[in-house]
């Protein structure tokens, strides 16, 4: 008997093992749903896959009377636009502030403790303040996302800047680089891949804030829809929406990873 950590799965086993939890969850749901529907055909808690399909085709292909929109696509567009704006502004803030604070000693001494304290404020606790200050519209939702993830990205970029070996910075100076040239020519290119990684890590938090903001006030959006239909116990809408959000988040993560690999090939090469 070898130790258990020394058994590595083969390629085929790996795929089967990876798929297994998904299959088990689906089967358990199917079994539960069938059992409940056998007792009460009008059961709302665990609808059959047929009713998921019916609800989603209705939401995706028929125009809603109240809003004059195809609800699924309209919700998706609204939520994604909020998310992308929030993430974009946060990434930009993170890049600019993170590099400046991380690279210039005086700015670092001034803002590092402040950033550390600021990033500990729970964003959802200040949501009422944001609603009071910015109203109930789009602005307060985007500010919430920025408030939630920008401090994390700024600190992550700062750490990356600080971890660039001192030797490289000295070397750049012996090659005649000014501060501006070191920022654009040494720091920025080495920080960009890490920025994309930290945006990837903040995707989950960003979705959390989008949905939280939409749950409280919105006229459309994926989170808004889920919380709206909750009143009617409409699990046939909620569960597909959750799956759809998960798929969107996964695709964004995958896309960013591919972008990183395509733009920064040097970052993937490790010293052998």
């Amino acid at each position: 008997m070898r130790r258990i950590i020394n058994y590595a799965p083969g390629n085929g086993t790996r795929i089967v093992l990876g798929a297994l939890p998904f299959v088990v969850v689906l089967l358990v749901y199917l079994a539960g749903s069938n059992a409940r529907l056998a007792i009460d055909p009008a059961d709302k808690l665990m609808p059959a896959f047929a009713s998921f399909y019916a609800s989603i085709t209705r939401l995706a292909t028929t125009v809603d009377i109240a809003t004059k929109q195809y609800l699924l696509w309209w919700d998706t567009a609204l939520s994604l636009w909020r998310l992308v704006q929030g993430l974009g502004i946060s990434a930009l803030l993170g890049l600019v502030l993170g590099i400046l604070i991380g690279f210039i000693p005086h700015l670092r001494a001034m803002f590092e403790p402040f950033m550390a304290a600021f990033s500990l404020i729970p964003p959802l606790a200040v949501l009422p303040i944001l609603f009071i200050l910015f109203g109930l519209g789009e602005l307060s939702k985007i500010v919430l996302i920025v408030f939630g993830i920008a401090p994390f990205i700024i600190r992550d970029v700062m750490l990356r800047v600080a971890s660039i070996p001192r030797e490289q910075i000295i070397k750049a100076q012996t090659l005649g680089a000014s501060t501006w040239q070191m920022i654009t020519g040494v720091v920025l290119p080495q920080v960009l891949p890490r920025l994309i990684d930290s945006v990837r890590l903040s995707l989950g938090a960003a979705w959390l804030y989008v949905i939280a903001a939409e749950a409280i006030t919105a006229e459309g959006g994926l989170g808004y829809r889920i919380f709206l239909v909750r009143r009617y116990l409409a699990m046939d809408v909620i569960l597909p929406y959750v799956a759809w959000i998960t798929l969107l988040a996964f695709l964004m993560d995958w896309g960013l990873r591919r972008l990183n690999a395509a733009c920064f090939p040097w970052d993937r090469i490790r010293e052998g």
Binding site: I170, K171, T174, V186, W266
Partner: peptide
């Protein structure tokens, strides 16, 4: 008072830029 381009340097490690 600071490193200038009339004095070159080679360190034991990390002397080159990994992104170039």
């Amino acid at each position: 008072p600071e490193p200038t381009h009339d004095r070159g340097v080679v360190f034991q490690r990390y002397s080159v830029f990994p992104h170039l």
